[in-house]
């Protein structure tokens, strides 16, 4: 059942978020495993640009038809942008979780936190123990 995509160039959290480092900034989204477990995404609530995140603390919520889930920040930082397209098209998270369904762009306050994130192989192991 682990046919979900886990791109090797990304970093991951146990809470099923991915992180892509782009120079001084990082982009954050939810993984293919997460969107597949959630099912049809119908609502995404994200913080305002300029707000700060704290590693491990909730920064927003994502809702499927049946359930509400918190989004946990992979690292601490300042929010530079949020994906406004998700307001009208939350289904982008299902359709393209690593692309047009991204969530937030951050400027990390402590780049050392990046080293604590999982690589693709470690994340795959964490999903295999939970696959339904």
């Amino acid at each position: 059942m682990s046919d979900e995509q886990i791109p090797s160039e990304l970093r991951y959290t146990k809470d099923d978020e991915w992180v892509r480092v782009e120079g001084d900034e990082v982009v954050v989204g939810v993984t293919d495993f997460a969107q597949s477990q959630l099912g049809d995404i119908v609502f995404v609530e994200l913080p305002a640009v300029g707000a700060t995140t704290e590693a491990g603390a909730p920064f927003g919520t994502i809702e499927s038809v049946k359930a509400v889930s918190d989004l946990f920040a992979p690292i601490s930082g300042e929010i530079l942008a949020v994906n406004e397209a998700l307001t009208d098209k939350p289904e982008l998270v299902n359709e393209s979780c690593y692309g047009t369904g991204w969530l937030i762009r951050l400027r990390p306050s402590d780049r050392g936190q990046l080293a604590a994130l999982l690589d693709a192989e470690a994340y795959r192991k964490s999903t295999e123990s939970r696959a339904s």
């Binding site: 099912g39 049809d40 499927s64 038809v65 049946k66 339904s132």
Partner: peptide
């Protein structure tokens, strides 16, 4: 199907997509 506990039963909550 994704199977979940419901009223003491293991039941399908969805097969493909609820929508």
């Amino acid at each position: 199907a994704r199977l979940v506990p419901f009223a003491g039963w293991e039941m399908p909550i969805q097969y493909s997509s609820i929508l």
